[in-house]
Amino acid sequence: MSLQQAEQINDSDDDVPRLSANTLAALQDFYQEQSQAQDQNCVGEDWQLSQFWYDNQTAETLAKEAIKASNNGSIACLSCPTLYRKLVELNPDNVQYIIFEYDKRFEIYGDDFIFYDYNEPMKFPSSVGKNSFDVVVADPPFLTEECLTKTACSIRYLTKDKIILCTGLKMQTLAERLLNLNVCQFRPKHANKLGNEFGSFTNYETTFLN
């Protein structure tokens, strides 16, 4: 039954049980939440922005690793909205997660969304202080030295300590030099198969990536 149908019942025959104002309000909230959830799940890849969504297994593995590493703390999702969506789905207790993303379609996530442009790697709102996050998970949109170098500046600013980086394996030497990261056994995969081979890199001993 839709909200419109519920309202029609209230407006019809007096013999039909009427819904209270509180019940109608609760129904309205429910349908708005359902609509918003559908909108979130329908945000498709924009290849012009070099967006390639993780497959479900990759998103779940990264989410579990980030939750474990955060120790009920905070997680920054830097240019990896698929991971954020998986965190929302898993809804871990006592864990805060924020999406930093250039694509403003993700403003649908409300206060969890912070606009981020890797070309301005130190431009954050005043509410985001230095070393604000227990874990930063980053997936730079382009496999270039410039993009990773600028993203690394953001990562160093945001993280208290732990870093998870997903990028092409060809960036391994640069990731080691910029952020002192080690390559893990886990290989991220994407819903649409990509030609480049991707890897995961961290600066700590992981639970799910090795």
Rank of each mutant, 00 (worst) to 15 (best):
C42Y: 06
V16M: 10
E145F: 03
A25M: 10
S12G: 01
M122S: 15
P81G: 05
V43N: 00
Q96L: 09
S126G: 13
V43H: 00
D93N: 08
I114Y: 01
L19R: 12
L78V: 07
G168E: 02
L62G: 15
L209Y: 05
E33Q: 09
K130A: 15
T207W: 00
L209K: 10
P125M: 09
E107H: 00
G195Y: 08
N180Y: 13
S126F: 04
S132F: 01
K104Y: 03
R187P: 07
D103P: 01
E145S: 03
K162I: 08
Q48S: 15
L78N: 08
L24Q: 06
Y102H: 13
N196Y: 10
D11G: 10
C80I: 03
L78A: 06
V95P: 07
K64D: 15
E7D: 05
G110D: 05
Y109A: 00
Q32G: 05
N71D: 15
S79F: 03
S127R: 05
R105L: 04
A152I: 06
C147A: 07
G44R: 09
L143V: 09
I75P: 05
Q48Y: 03
D11H: 06
L49P: 13
N196P: 00
F124R: 01
A66P: 03
K162T: 13
Y118W: 12
L49E: 02
I98Q: 12
Y54N: 14
D14L: 10
S70H: 10
E60V: 11
Q172A: 10
T202M: 06
F133L: 09
T151Q: 08
R18T: 12
D134C: 00
C153V: 15
A69T: 15
N91W: 01
A152C: 07
E60Q: 15
N203D: 12
A76W: 02
Y102P: 00
Q5P: 08
A37G: 00
T61W: 10
L158W: 01
Q51H: 13
L165Y: 14
G168V: 05
R105N: 02
T207A: 14
N56G: 04
N72D: 13
D111Y: 01
E60L: 12
A37E: 07
L174Q: 12
Y31A: 04
C166I: 11
S2E: 04
D112T: 11
N71H: 07
D13G: 06
N94A: 14
